[in-house]
């Protein structure tokens, strides 16, 4: 069995004692280097799950361990947050400093990285997200996508094993979304960074290793994107969309055209070539 970065065991979580459960008896294992997507409508518990996975919230029942460390163990709190960084939804509300490179330094300062070591790590992190030329800019003058990339750099500089993305593209325009998602995919591919991608945009989950669909605090569907998106009716029942090409494929199948295994435009082109020649 490969190294587990996250091991979520039978976790339940309520915001108030005795209150309704936002997450109920949920288990999830994430191996090193994986790119997992968690889908679900607002209020399905997907954000809560993310915050349980780096110890921002502690489980009411069950346990979460990150790289073998239990999040309930206080002496590991900072170590866990270094290993499992997080990028949030609102690009404006997570940058602290008035200059990009100082913001990237923020986490390093917090964990006591020696001053001499900082510039190198900052340069590297900014390079990894393609923001080197913006190092001296003020964050409020950047576009949404750029701000999110700075936030990623701030986490990367801390050399994490994994990054949790809590709807990090929800407030971006399509260009910003593409920018951020492609940067993250590259980090996963090239640096072997483990990624938990939380979103309600179905299309963003098309390329990932595994998809988990959450509904009222539980995992309602899981599997590879192809397996999950093939279950159009189940998805609709969970009030989620199906990627447009998967929907088109369904319409075609209903009309008798035997298209198979379609998620993306390229899949549809392949099927059309196969069937229409």
């Amino acid at each position: 069995m490969p190294d587990l970065i996250f091991d979520v065991q039978n976790v339940s979580f309520a915001y108030e004692e005795g209150g309704p459960l936002a997450v109920r008896s949920l288990s999830l294992q994430v191996p090193k280097g994986a790119f997992y997507a968690v889908l679900g409508q607002n209020g399905s518990g997907k954000s809560t799950l993310a915050k349980l996975m780096n110890g921002l919230y502690l489980p009411t029942e069950g346990s979460v361990s990150v790289c073998g460390m239990d999040t309930k163990d206080e002496k590991h709190t900072w170590d866990i947050r270094c290993r499992a960084g997080m990028v949030f939804q609102n690009p404006d509300n997570q940058l602290v400093a008035t200059i990009v490179r100082e913001d990237v330094a923020f986490g390093l300062e917090n964990i006591g990285v020696p001053t001499e070591e900082m510039p190198g790590r900052i340069e590297q992190a900014l390079r990894d997200v393609g923001m080197t030329e913006y190092a001296e800019r003020a964050p409020h003058l950047l576009s949404g996508g750029q701000k999110q990339r700075v936030a990623i750099a701030g986490v990367l500089a801390m050399r994490p094993e994994a990054i949790l993305f809590d709807e990090s593209t929800a407030m971006l325009d399509p260009q910003g979304r593409r920018e951020v998602l492609s940067a993250v995919k590259r980090l996963n591919r090239e640096l072997g960074l483990t990624v938990i991608w939380i979103t309600h945009f179905m299309e963003e989950a098309v390329d990932c290793d595994k998809v988990f669909v959450m509904h009222s605090g539980e995992i309602a569907l899981s599997g590879t994107p192809r397996e999950v998106f093939a279950r159009e009716e189940a998805l609709r029942a969970l009030r989620l969309d199906v990627p447009p090409m998967a929907h088109l494929a369904q319409t075609l199948r209903e009309a008798g055209m035997p298209v198979q295994d379609v998620l993306t435009v390229e899949d549809m082109v392949r099927e059309a070539k196969r069937l229409c020649r």
Partner: peptide, 14 residues
């Protein structure tokens, strides 16, 4: 914003 920021700062080990 303050709530969001506090959460983000905590996640970055502040």
């Amino acid at each position: 914003r303050a709530g969001d920021l506090a959460m983000a700062m905590e996640a970055r080990c502040y």
